[in-house]
Design a protein around this nucleic acid. Sequence first.
DNA 1: CGGTTCGTTGAGGCCCATCAATCTATGTGG
DNA 2: CCACATAGATTGATGGGCCTCAACGAACCG
Lengths: 261, 261
Amino acid sequence: MIGAQPSETLSGNRLATRQLSRLVGTRIWTSRFLSREERDALGNAVVSTRSVGANTDLVRQGERADSLFIVADGWACRYTTTREGGRQFPALRVPGDVGNLDSLMFDRLDYGVRTLTQATIVTLPRDRMVALAAQHPGIGRTFTWLAPVENAILSIWALSLGRRSAKERLAHLLSELSVRLDAEDGNESSFAFPLTQEHIADTLGLTNIHINRTMQQLRSNGMIGTANRTMTLPDVQSLRDICGFDLSYLHIKPSPEAQLA
Amino acid sequence: MIGAQPSETLSGNRLATRQLSRLVGTRIWTSRFLSREERDALGNAVVSTRSVGANTDLVRQGERADSLFIVADGWACRYTTTREGGRQFPALRVPGDVGNLDSLMFDRLDYGVRTLTQATIVTLPRDRMVALAAQHPGIGRTFTWLAPVENAILSIWALSLGRRSAKERLAHLLSELSVRLDAEDGNESSFAFPLTQEHIADTLGLTNIHINRTMQQLRSNGMIGTANRTMTLPDVQSLRDICGFDLSYLHIKPSPEAQLA
DNA sequence: CGGTTCGTTGAGGCCCATCAATCTATGTGG
DNA sequence: CCACATAGATTGATGGGCCTCAACGAACCG
């Protein structure tokens, strides 16, 4: 919060540069729709960068959010719950993701956003971002790009939740995270993995106990390896074959047509 | 298709009026962000209105879509499938819904859009809509509004798929449709319901057989009544109580805050 | 070293899937 | 008007994948 106002008036000063640097590499920063000056405009809109502990609500269910939260580092989730206490994550946030994109359009979110690990959160004022989106086509396009991407991912998650077995769901989630984290090197993949088995259960609509047993299955088949919070996928292709994983829904790389357009 | 070009040049002529009329009442027409002239611009962008049979693909899985399809009448769905043939609908389209909103941003959709009944489809050229969205703030805002609404609905569906019993899922779906179709009169509701039990199964991640048994349960409890393709909910509140339904996620009515903004 | 979180294991049972018919309604052609 | 085909709804029997309940083990930490 300190340094927020100066960064707006003195472009290029030390504070602005430091704030800005926290956006580098995040998904709104690497958007292919942004011009250099639009990136500067985003960087100058940062009002705070703070570190928060695990299990911190960035937005509580049903509450108002005046800011857009960027998960610059650490993991977070969107969560929903039933009356009876059943929890379901409709989205996972990995480093670089926008936490509450929908807050740009909604005053209240019917779900919450919560950190799963200690995290670095970059805060951007909602009203300012709405104005920037209207003023800068590239910024507007970035936001309107991210929304359908979320939707596409959630659609595939629905397919998993509705029609795949526990083993397939787990293989699919790990295949997805491997791509989203850009962790693949040839047919191998390895990445920091802070999720507990209960987090995975809340993502896949299962119980932590069954996640445990399913992970053992994949482990004994040599499909995954876990050691000190690191996930290793020795054979990405085989893991993908288990669940019919096709990365196109992640829209990571622009399709050939999109480049022409 | 006939009359498409004239409708662009001769505003207010008979053809333009007829085309335009097919948009009246649809979700992009009733958007609260649109000015009168923006509605005219949308109406003039209509290139065809056609009737198609049930089980017609508007967009096939993984294929390109050059147009935005409005389901002016009839029902449709977004669908995804696993390799093994398991089907899951990540969205249902009721009369007035936009069929393939995401086509505005994506060249290829990783899911398909298919009619479930005979339907009236209004076609709007994609490139034209992108241009209109850029040119008219209200049109752009309408599209960027619809995307997170879809996302919010899908998030709640994920909660159902992951954490609710068959009975709760069915009660929740019917509660949702009752609101979306604006079919409620006090505590009662009644609406045309063309879905087969297999469609419901593909929506809720269950089998048609289990849907059948679950419907019988709700019927015998007096929670639903079905007769010649009409669904009757004699006691909406009790149905909602079964599943903890809260309509706020549908964002049908602007929240108090949104009106102030 | 006690507390807490997370992972692991076992026993038992239910919800829902699977397989296999039958029944009804609708439509179609002769 | 009937024979026939087809789609959709319904019913029964059986089984399995995952849940529930209840511990116990392991790692981390102040």
